[in-house]
Simulated assay, not measured.
Amino acid sequence: MREFENPDRWDKAAEHYERTAHPFTARFAEAALARVPLTAQSRVLDVATGTGALAFAAARTGAQVLAVDFSPGMVARVAAAGLPNVDAKVMDGQDLALPDAGFDAVFSIFGVIMFPDWRRGLAEMARVTRPGGHGVVATWQERGAATFLLLGQIRRKLFPERETMAMPEGVMALGEPDAFARELVAAGYHAPRIERAVFDYELDIAMLDEPDTLFGMSPDWAGLTAEDKEAVVAEARRMAGTRPILPIPSTALIAVAER
């Protein structure tokens, strides 16, 4: 089992993820949400919700939201918000314990793309979307985002002879718009519309004082020696120069398709 497929890993990372990644991914969640009209009568499913960036944004429209994730730690974070129109449950997005055609809109923001069987995840999303409803999926383009992207860039500069972490198969397969559209159609959706969205991850350079916290979720970091890690941190500081914040432009593809 690869680390990102292990719910225990995400349970342990939930607090750090909520503090560092959630504000960043929330910007893409808002961009995805803006592409689908929701009302207080809408039924919304957020697959692989993480700490609930999309779920909370959808809840602000008044919609009834079900947020699911295979990580109990992540689900607990969503439930702790106590929003009356958000229900959070532990559930495998590759085998949703939900009836057919039960939702007006089904979202997965950087979630299904990480599944071992991401095609099944897409098909499950389509299965539970009502006819005339929408499926919305966001994936990373290029080589990921935020600190993962930065670490990969630095590794390729400092250690060009070394291999970097392989991206999940779903990210690689869906990283090009035409291929992304074909997979959504194969899953059971139609008329997909795919657009790019770019936001900066704003890295507080002070966080480089605790690099294991900053980069620790990446296998590319765990495989470095102490000397290598010092070199990576030094390069990140060099890139920032005198700036207290280092912007890391990160590109996503956001697809909206009809059922």
Rank of each mutant, 00 (worst) to 15 (best):
A63S: 13
P131N: 08
A59H: 02
D92N: 15
A97Y: 03
M114S: 13
V86N: 04
R60T: 12
V90I: 14
D95N: 15
A79T: 09
G132T: 10
A57C: 10
R77C: 09
A79Q: 12
M125N: 03
G73P: 06
A53Y: 03
V78S: 01
N85H: 12
V128A: 03
D87E: 15
V65H: 08
D95Y: 14
W118N: 01
F56D: 01
E124N: 13
I109V: 10
L96N: 03
A59N: 03
V68G: 05
F110C: 06
V78R: 01
A81D: 07
V78C: 05
G93I: 01
D104I: 10
L96Y: 05
R120A: 15
Q94R: 07
S71E: 01
V75E: 01
R130H: 11
D69W: 08
M114V: 11
D87Y: 08
F107D: 00
F115V: 05
Q64Y: 07
A59S: 09
R77S: 09
L122F: 09
R120T: 14
G102T: 02
Q94F: 08
D104F: 08
V78G: 02
A105S: 11
G121C: 06
G62V: 09
A79E: 05
L66S: 00
R127G: 06
P84L: 15
Q64F: 11
A79F: 06
A57V: 06
V90Q: 06
M91W: 02
R120L: 15
V75H: 07
I113D: 01
P84S: 11
D104H: 13
R119F: 11
A55K: 02
L83Y: 11
V86A: 06
A80K: 04
P99Q: 12
R120N: 13
P131F: 10
G82H: 12
A80S: 14
R60H: 10
V112W: 01
F103P: 01
W118P: 00
D100S: 15
M91I: 08
A123G: 12
D69Y: 11
A58W: 03
F107K: 04
V68D: 01
D117I: 07
D117G: 08
A88C: 13
D92M: 07
K89M: 11
P99V: 13
A81P: 01
V90F: 11
A97Q: 11
L96V: 09
R60D: 12
G73M: 09
P131R: 12
A81T: 05
D100N: 14
M74K: 03
F56V: 14
L83I: 07
P99R: 07
G102D: 00
M125W: 05
V86F: 04
P131H: 09
G111R: 01
R60W: 10
A101L: 04
Q94W: 07
A105P: 05
T61S: 15
Q94L: 08
F103Q: 00
A97S: 13
I113S: 12
V68P: 02
G132D: 06
A57P: 03
A55I: 01
P116V: 06
F115L: 10
I109P: 00
V86T: 02
V90N: 11
P84H: 11
P99M: 09
G102N: 08
V78E: 00
L54R: 02
T61H: 04
D104C: 14
F103D: 00
P131E: 12
V68C: 12
S71A: 15
A53I: 08
D117T: 09
L83A: 10
K89V: 13
R60F: 06
R130V: 13
A63D: 04
A58M: 12
V78T: 04
